[in-house]
Design a protein around this nucleic acid. Structure first.
Lengths: 136, 136
DNA sequence: TTGAGATGTAACTATAATAGTTACAACAGG
DNA sequence: CCTGTTGTAACTATTATAGTTACATCTCAA
């Protein structure tokens, strides 16, 4: 099983998108909705800020999206939260004296590339707006 | 990053597939090619046996595939080694009193399903034979 | 029939990733 | 100045993975 950062990030962005009274959006309030610690939220928001997905100011409650929900793909969020850049790890240093060990890494690389591409395409095909539509 | 069990499993199965002298295939020999501990190999082979991908006998060196490489998809191997059944974890117990918290889980479920399906299709589209062809 | 070499498996350890938590500096605004 | 907030560093707890040790059990040949 993989981490839940993507899920939390989508949750946070959804909350910001549908909340009109931005001053209501403290890290404490968001943490209450996600059911986690406010610092976990602030840490994650730091990553989303670095990716230019939202903005905030020290000392002032409230966050604002920097893009329209329809222009934020799930893959953009995935990259923002520093999701793994491959789905499967390839074991290190197989024996080069062995016919299989010698070439297995590049063979696996080729096989995994198409899987990664398919996964990426699906994440790019969905936007935050799609998630918001599903919330109704 | 995710575990390397799939890579190791494919390595092991490839080795068994291309080795004609089966008595050469001890867990020690395989571990030497993969560059890991023999017990790691035996543990993994136990999983592959449970999935009816190969056979072996206590005390006797050697493993044999139970299916043709062209009939073993990478997804079959993925399932054999007990790969995660979803790509992304959904955080537990979001606040039901919150409009987003209340529905986010099923919304994420829907979004993630298509990603999982795409990944699965790619793993099903490739077989051990494809990997063997790439090794040449 | 015994000893060497193999598999099967349980149990323990080491390491790394993730999430949760504590603490505190810095800032805003009444 | 005081309260409430963001931003961040540092520590802890938990979990997954891989590596390791140990040993029961089996096969086969000397």
């Amino acid at each position: 099983m993989v981490n839940s950062r993507l899920s939390v990030a989508i949750h946070v962005l959804s909350l910001i998108a549908i909340t009109s009274d931005k001053s209501q959006l403290t890290s404490d309030f968001i943490a209450g909705s996600v059911n986690t610690n406010p610092v976990v939220i602030r840490r994650m928001i730091g990553m989303l800020k670095k990716a230019d997905l939202l903005t905030s100011q020290p000392g002032i409650a409230g966050y604002e999206l920097l893009k329209e929900p329809k222009d934020i793909t799930l893959f953009m969020i995935y990259e923002a939260i520093d999701g793994p850049k491959q789905l499967f790890t390839i074991h290190e240093e197989p024996n080069p004296a062995c016919h299989v060990g010698q070439k297995i890494q590049q063979s696996l690389e080729a096989s995994y590339t198409s899987v990664w591409r398919a996964m990426k395409e699906q994440l790019q095909a969905q936007t935050l707006q799609d998630v918001l539509d599903q919330l109704r």
